[in-house]
């Protein structure tokens, strides 16, 4: 995964729940092409029509609260969004995203500070979010080492696959 990338900011509010990210009635869908059209349908039924590949969500506090369903994080990753930048994340959603190596960046001030449609740059190594439009920086806490490892190997699935392989040798 690229550790530095740019994208257009799409803003969502605070306390975005997994129900809003992917309503429960779609949680038994298994094919990516079935899931993706419903991403963020619970908050904006037209979201996928205004979203472009590589866009970055900018949200308020407690993003991903509610149910534990990982399918919500998976659907977001499959949709082509590049990352989510938020004031804070709910813990299970955060864990799920780390496990599938989808970048979440927690940085104070991003929600009031970044406007809809602004071009922003994310630097995962430095823990930096930069609003290119306004030339303003937002600092995040860089990932702890264990999370860095997970992101580098491509998520927990790959991490376990390597360990399972080792035990078999």
């Amino acid at each position: 995964m690229e550790s530095r990338f740019r994208g257009r900011a799409l803003k969502l509010g605070p306390n975005i729940s997994t129900e809003q990210i992917l309503p429960a009635r779609y949680s038994t869908l298994t094919k990516p092409e079935d899931l993706v059209p419903h991403v963020f349908e619970g908050i904006d039924p037209l979201f996928m029509s205004r979203m472009k590949k590589g866009d970055i969500i900018v949200a308020g506090a407690n993003f991903g609260c509610g149910g534990s369903r990982e399918i919500a994080a998976i659907a977001v990753k499959l949709s082509g969004l590049a990352a989510i930048v938020a004031e804070s994340f709910s813990r299970i959603f955060y864990r799920n995203a780390m496990n599938i190596a989808f970048p979440l960046i927690e940085a104070a001030g991003v929600f009031p500070g970044i406007a809809e449609g602004a071009i922003i740059e994310v630097d995962l190594d430095k823990g930096l979010v930069r609003d290119i439009t306004k030339m303003r920086n937002f600092h995040s806490v860089p990932y702890p080492d264990f999370m860095k490892t997970l992101m580098q190997v491509g998520g927990l699935e790959e991490y376990v696959r390597q360990r399972v392989k080792k035990t078999e040798l």
Partner: peptide, 28 residues
């Protein structure tokens, strides 16, 4: 399941995780 925290009522540590977590825990 996010409500796994219910188990804490009996003096246990109980926390919700995701599906990849569960698969990893089954495997390892």
């Amino acid at each position: 399941d996010s409500r796994t925290c219910t188990g804490g009522v009996l003096g246990a540590f109980a926390a919700g995780v995701g599906s990849t977590d569960m698969a990893a825990a089954w495997a390892l």
